[in-house]
């Protein structure tokens, strides 16, 4: 999959992007509304992509069962309606008209259109945005099954949504197109150095932004991530470059209640609100900062975290 570069007022707005899509792998791109639209628009004229846009509507006056029947017939598939209704977990809503469903369920039913797509690549815009927890789980299950045969690309502005079902996540913004490291590798062991026990001296974290050196008190920091080798310190929605490595930062911040929750992430435990469990093997942490920030949590780190929090 390839995207052409686009310029806005002489500035590179969308870099040239080449994605190596393989089946059994779904890719997420975290980006803003305008870039999402531009990406989708580049794919419109190719018949190998099924585009699901956020504004997709549904036939409101059909019942759920009638809609599924219609989708089966119009795509000439040989599935049985009853079996599919079971698979979609929509048995109870069988006779309910689409317009009478809750908004989350209605969106979920609308999203089922991607299940019937015959194109080899599915592109979804903000699939999880309007879904409630339970419907998210159902849809994630369906997408996981679909990804066995198809390539899936998810465009979203929310890291949490991308974490739910993407194997590789990229961030696309004014600083370019960069992969985020969210892989959960267990064999990854860092050499844990001995901690300086009496280290209660003042610890400022020095960061750089636009050639200015900015010092942060550790409690201010929400979380720290490593993107392609460079360290970004997130404070109150903004991010700042830092010259230290994650291991160094981890040691310096340990006494301030920070926790290395992932190979590429250190999180301020004081700001963690929720531990989200997607499946048995994937977790993330939601922070209670102003912006809805979500940080991945390795499975191997979960026990450590639980011990730390006495849960």
């Amino acid at each position: 999959m390839q995207f052409q570069p686009m310029y806005d007022n002489g500035e590179l707005f969308l870099p040239k992007i080449e994605l190596n899509m393989t089946s059994n792998q779904s890719i997420g791109i975290i980006t803003d509304l305008k870039r999402k639209q531009l990406l989708m628009n580049q794919l419109v004229n190719y018949s190998e992509y099924y585009l699901f846009r956020a504004g997709q509507g549904e036939y409101m006056r059909l019942t759920v069962e009638e809609l599924i029947t219609f989708l089966i017939k119009v795509t000439e598939r040989n599935e049985r309606v009853a079996l599919l209704m079971d698979y979609f977990a929509l048995k109870e809503e069988r006779k309910v008209k689409i317009k009478d469903l809750s908004s989350s369920k209605r969106m979920y039913v609308t999203l089922l259109r991607v299940f019937f797509a015959h194109q080899p690549t599915l592109v979804l815009e903000e699939p999880y945005f309007y879904l409630e927890e339970q419907d998210r789980r159902h849809f994630k299950r369906i997408l996981d099954d679909l990804s066995k045969e198809k390539q899936i690309l998810i465009l979203t502005s929310n890291l949490e949504d991308a974490i739910i079902s993407c194997d590789a996540i990229y961030r696309l913004n004014e600083s370019g197109f960069h992969p985020l490291d969210i892989r959960d590798s267990e064999e990854d062991k860092q050499e844990v150095q001995k901690q300086d026990e009496a280290n209660i001296t003042l610890q400022k974290i020095s960061t750089k932004r636009n050639d200015k050196v900015i010092l942060f008190n550790p409690p201010e920091i929400d979380f720290i991530e490593s993107i392609e080798g460079s360290i970004l310190v997130h404070v109150g929605g903004g991010n700042y470059d830092c010259a230290l490595t994650l291991t160094e930062l981890e040691q310096r911040l340990l006494n301030f209640g920070f926790f290395r929750c992932h190979r590429s992430y250190i999180v301020n435990l004081q700001k963690v609100r929720e531990i989200i469990t997607w499946t048995k093997n994937s977790y993330s942490l939601r922070l209670n900062t102003g912006q809805d920030a979500v940080v991945p949590l390795s499975r191997s780190k979960l026990h450590e975290l639980k011990a730390l929090l006495n849960i």
Binding site: G55, Q56, Y59, V74, H118
Partner: peptide, 10 residues
């Protein structure tokens, strides 16, 4: 409702 566009992809 954008269903026509979706229909064109079937």
């Amino acid at each position: 409702r954008n269903t026509l566009r979706s229909l064109m992809m079937t």
